[in-house]
Design a protein around this nucleic acid. Structure first.
Lengths: 199, 199
DNA sequence: GTCTGAAAGCGACTGCTGTTCGCTTTTATT
DNA sequence: AATAAAAGCGAACAGCAGTCGCTTTCAGAC
C-alpha cells in the first residue's frame, strides 16, 4: 500500500491474499472468464497494471485459489496419514475429509473448478503439479494397505487417481441421483469393494 | 461451392464435414484455441465470414468433432447392447470397444478433449447433452446386470458415470504406470470387482 | 434471351480482451 | 535537499471472435 517503501515478501503475500479475497466474489457471481482484468482491478480498488505487480497473468489469480485450497487439503491429509491405525482406515478418513471439504466449499470450489478447466494449458499444468502432491499421498496409503494385506495388489497410483477422479464428478454432476453425501458414499463403497482382498 | 444456387441440407452437412476435415490438422498441430478464425478460414481455403455460414461460432467447429465421434461410439455400443448374452458381459464388451476406440483415436481424441475443456460453459453444456445418450446406455446395462443378479444394487447412473470418468483419465494421465491397455484393464477390474455380487 | 431475386462468399471493420509501457507519486536513505 | 528506487497508474498495443455491407453468381420467371 505505501508507495515509496519496498514491500517485504510477507507483505506481498498478504496483499495478494487481500486482493484475491476482494475479487473472488465477482468470480463466483459472474464467472472468472467473464470478468475482465479492468473489472477485477476495479473490484480490488487498484489500477489495472498494479494488479500485474501481484499476479503475473490473469490465470495466476485463479491458480492462487487452488494453491491455497490444495495446501489445506494436503495438510489435513498428512495429519491423518500419520495416525497409528490400519492404512485402509486412514484412507477412508482422508477421503471422508476430502468429501467434507468438497461439500463445505462446494459452491465456490465447484464453480471455480469448472473455470479452472478453461485456463490455458500451461496454467493447467501448473495446477496439475500441485495436485500431484496430494495424489502421491493417497497413493502411499493404497501402497501401505497392500503391504498390510487389506488391499489387493493393484497399481497404487492408478487406484489413487481413480479414487480422486471419481469423487469430483459426483459433486459436479448435472444429473444427481441423491444427495452429494449419498453419492459419495456409494462411490467409495464401490471403490473399496473393488480393491479389497476378497474374504 | 457454387455461388448462386441454394445448398441442400445434405450438401451443407457435407461441406461442414469437408471444412472440418481440412482444418482439424491445424488443431492437432498447434491447438484449437491457439488457432485464430483467420487461420482456420485460410486453411479451409475460404473467407473468414464464409466460415460463419457453416459454423455459428468458433466453439461449434470443435463440437462438431465430438458429435461425430460420440455418434460412432454410441452406435457401436447400441449394437452390442442388443446382443443376447448376460448384461455384465455386454458391459465388458462395450467398455472394451470404448477402450479400443480411445486408443485408436488416442492422439487426436486426447488433444481435442483437452481443448474441449476450454470451451465456453455454454458449449460444454451442449457437449454434455451429447454425452448423456451414451451415459444412459451404460446405465441401462448396469441396471440390467443388477436385475440379472450379477451386480450389487448400486445406483446405475452413478456407476455409469464412475466407469466413464475413470477410463478417460487413464488415457490422459501425465504419469502413466504401464501401457494404456494395462491401465484400462486394471481400472475395469477394480470397477467390476466393486459392483459384482460377492461370491 | 434477359432480367431478377436470393443465396454464397468475402474482407474491412467493430468492440473487446489480456498485457505492456512510460510516466507520476511517494518515501527511506544519503 | 537531493537521490534512487519502488508502487501505482491509465493510455496504448496487438490480437481476437464475430458482424456488416457489399459483390458475384446463377436458377427460374417472363
Amino acid at each position: 500500500m505505501p508507495k515509496g517503501i519496498r514491500l517485504t515478501e510477507e507483505e506481498q503475500a498478504n496483499r495478494r491474499h487481500e486482493i484475491f479475497h476482494k475479487v473472488v466474489k465477482v468470480f463466483l457471481k459472474k464467472g472468472f472468464h467473464e470478468t475482465s482484468m479492468r473489472e477485477i482491478a476495479e473490484q480490488a480498488g487498484i489500477g489495472k497494471s498494479t494488479l500485474y505487480d501481484y499476479f503475473k497473468t490473469k490465470d495466476e489469480i485463479l491458480l492462487y485459489f487452488f494453491e491455497d485450497q490444495l495446501n489445506d487439503l494436503t495438510e489435513a491429509a498428512q495429519r491423518i496419514a500419520l495416525q497409528n491405525i490400519p492404512a485402509d482406515e486412514r484412507l477412508r478418513r482422508v477421503m471422508k475429509t476430502h468429501m467434507e471439504f468438497l461439500q463445505a466449499n462446494k459452491s465456490s470450489f465447484m464453480k471455480l473448478s469448472l473455470e479452472a478447466q478453461r485456463l490455458k494449458l500451461e496454467s493447467q499444468n501448473e495446477l496439475q503439479k500441485k495436485r500431484h502432491t496430494y495424489q502421491d499421498l493417497i497413493r502411499g496409503l493404497v501402497g501401505e494397505g497392500i503391504r498390510e494385506g487389506t488391499f489387493r495388489k493393484v497399481d497404487p497410483l492408478l487406484a489413487a487417481r481413480m479414487l480422486i477422479n471419481t469423487l469430483l464428478p459426483v459433486v459436479f454432476t448435472s444429473r444427481p441421483t441423491g444427495t452429494a453425501q449419498e453419492m459419495m458414499e456409494e462411490t467409495m463403497d464401490i471403490f473399496f469393494k473393488g480393491i479389497e482382498v476378497c474374504e
